[in-house]
């Protein structure tokens, strides 16, 4: 598991290095490989972030689908919030609701909470075990089941496969 962690961190650092440099020759490649190998060996030996991820083809497919789904949600709900801000009567209906998640891995929960925060209209205020407290700009269901179905389910079905 430690080896997998180091390898994933190495390729991530190398990709960031190439994107930052913007040119692809042998000198850049050599310096990049040296630097990312050094950083991943020194700093990523003990942390266990990537060891929970599922790198089968299905997991990778769901990962890219998840990126597009969350970007679509981001744009859709941004237009919704913009409509609420512009309209003169300010049609908001705020409140804090409670939802539950089934995810077990730590990184999966972090990405779920970040995605909920990134879609405008919902904001994770507090994470407590399986329970998320979420501030909604427009509350539709106040009970746990309805709120979970509204907010969490659309992200959770992808994250369950990726961090299975």
């Amino acid at each position: 598991m430690k080896i997998k962690n180091i390898i994933v961190a190495f390729f991530l650092l190398l990709a960031t290095w190439f994107l930052l440099n913007g040119k692809y020759d042998l000198t850049t490649l050599g310096i990049g490989i040296m630097l990312s190998l050094f950083i991943s060996l020194v700093f990523c030996g003990k942390c266990e972030i990537f060891s929970e991820m599922n790198f089968s083809p299905k997991g990778i497919l769901y990962f890219f689908t998840y990126i597009f789904v969350s970007l679509g949600e981001l744009i859709k709900s941004n237009f919704d919030v913009a409509r609420r801000v512009v309209s003169p009567s300010l049609p908001i209906n705020p409140g804090i609701v409670e939802v539950e998640t089934k995810l077990k891995s730590k990184l999966g929960r972090m990405i779920l909470a970040n995605s909920i925060t990134l879609t405008p209209g919902t904001l994770t205020v507090k994470v407590e075990g399986d329970t998320f407290f979420i501030h909604c700009i427009n509350v539709e269901h106040t009970d746990i089941e309805g709120a979970t179905k509204d907010i969490v389910k659309k992200f959770e079905k992808y994250l369950e496969v990726i961090y299975g």
Binding site: L74, I75, N78, V81, A82, V85, I92, P94, T117, L118, T119, P120, G121, L123, V125, H135, I137
Partner: peptide, 13 residues
């Protein structure tokens, strides 16, 4: 809380 909602996320997009 509503200011955080509109302030830090509409500006992200």
């Amino acid at each position: 809380y509503n200011r955080i909602q509109t302030g830090t996320k509409a500006t992200t997009l």
